[in-house]
Design a binder for these strands. Sequence first.
DNA 1: CGTCCTCTTGACGGCTTTCAATAAAAGTGG
DNA 2: CCACTTTTATTGAAAGCCGTCAAGAGGACG
Lengths: 244, 244
Amino acid sequence: MSGSCIAERLEHYLSLTDRERSALARLEENERSVRRGTIVRRENDRGTDLLIIKSGWMFSHVLLDDGSRQISRLHFPGDMVGASALAFLKATDSLVALTDVRFAGFDKSMLRDLFEAHPRIAAALFAFAQAESVALTDRIASLGRTSAKARVAALLLDTVSRLRVMDKQLRNRFAFPLTQEEIGDVTGLTAVHVNRMMRALVEDRLIRRSNSHIEVIDEPKMSRLANYTDRYAELDTNWLPAPR
Amino acid sequence: MSGSCIAERLEHYLSLTDRERSALARLEENERSVRRGTIVRRENDRGTDLLIIKSGWMFSHVLLDDGSRQISRLHFPGDMVGASALAFLKATDSLVALTDVRFAGFDKSMLRDLFEAHPRIAAALFAFAQAESVALTDRIASLGRTSAKARVAALLLDTVSRLRVMDKQLRNRFAFPLTQEEIGDVTGLTAVHVNRMMRALVEDRLIRRSNSHIEVIDEPKMSRLANYTDRYAELDTNWLPAPR
DNA sequence: CGTCCTCTTGACGGCTTTCAATAAAAGTGG
DNA sequence: CCACTTTTATTGAAAGCCGTCAAGAGGACG
């Protein structure tokens, strides 16, 4: 990932022209590294920057008045993070590094040029955003209508599906650096109950665990249990404008 | 709303040029009306159409394997519906008319021309999509971390905030044509418990109810109870490209 | 005016949370 | 590399919120 991460991501779904690639590379000229645990941005900060993750994991979260926390999304390499800055002046959520992270930051004004010069990229980013919305909708169904076990299972399946987009080698086993409390904050559960559900998944022979790694043993069965659909494997790119 | 609904919606946040207005109007040339209860599209249909609602309410929902239903979003006049078609070939959710509805349908290929000829519109739609994502994220926090009463309250507050975008006259009272079962399918609750929570909100003097109308009595207090933030009042349009 | 849908209410049960305590692991400083 | 501290994982018991089941009332619609 020495070149452009976002270009690499897009090329999993369509072929870019050289002009497009170099336009995208401009978004990632400004690179930064932070340590695990670093709060990169706080809710209500007036930061207008967007990020593209080059390596490591991050997550966004909101804090509620009663002190509880909801992790709104995990972010993986190749993800564009903080796009809500395009709609609002203040950050709508906080952004935290889950592992050591390298990322590129750019101001949203840079997207203006991209939208003017590269309508196909703009349209592709729009399609991406819609796919992400569908993924959020899936999570709403998960939180609203499925059991605790299914929610934890859905999180693991979603993680492995998303990691596979950028890592074609990845099969069933992957590093999973979330604490059980963090898993609870993603799935809307308590850490205690996450613990019980993880053990239940192990007892059901759906997953295995070893030092912060997860292995999914029976993905089809687990997908059925979790009511999970992979939204990242394909994208419809037929309607996109011609490249420039 | 004889002209373009989506243009009217956008003009609440920015001023359009005549060229932009007429480009948007082209999306709404093909108008249809359906009766309350009509299923306009089913999950997994190969429909690639997008919709713009001109009058009436709709909702999108998914069905889970166990037969339960999750309503993923309510749709109001001025909303662009079915944008997930931009990312996928098959519909990711079903679309139902909640009241009698007039809407315009257009194929996603029409967006191609819009993205090429009107980068500012493209960018504005992108910003809109991000605002919707934030609204979905708010709902995830609501479902994951708040009580049943708070979820119902949040739904009512979200409804009134969204209706106000297109109806500046609207104050605290509005028609709310959802059954309690449908409210449950939005909030992840059972109809029985929705009933109890609605009465609790009435007893708390936060709302009044009368023949399918809701009046919000104490909006600030209810917003605090529900942990609700209005995401529709403003949009940052400073970064957008110049109009054409 | 009968049927179906929706709203309402009560009793009971279960899934998840809360509280509490211990063990294991990871991080820190000497 | 070893004590020490802090975080994380694990387990049990009890409580609570919300779901399930059931039954009746009220309204809409044909």
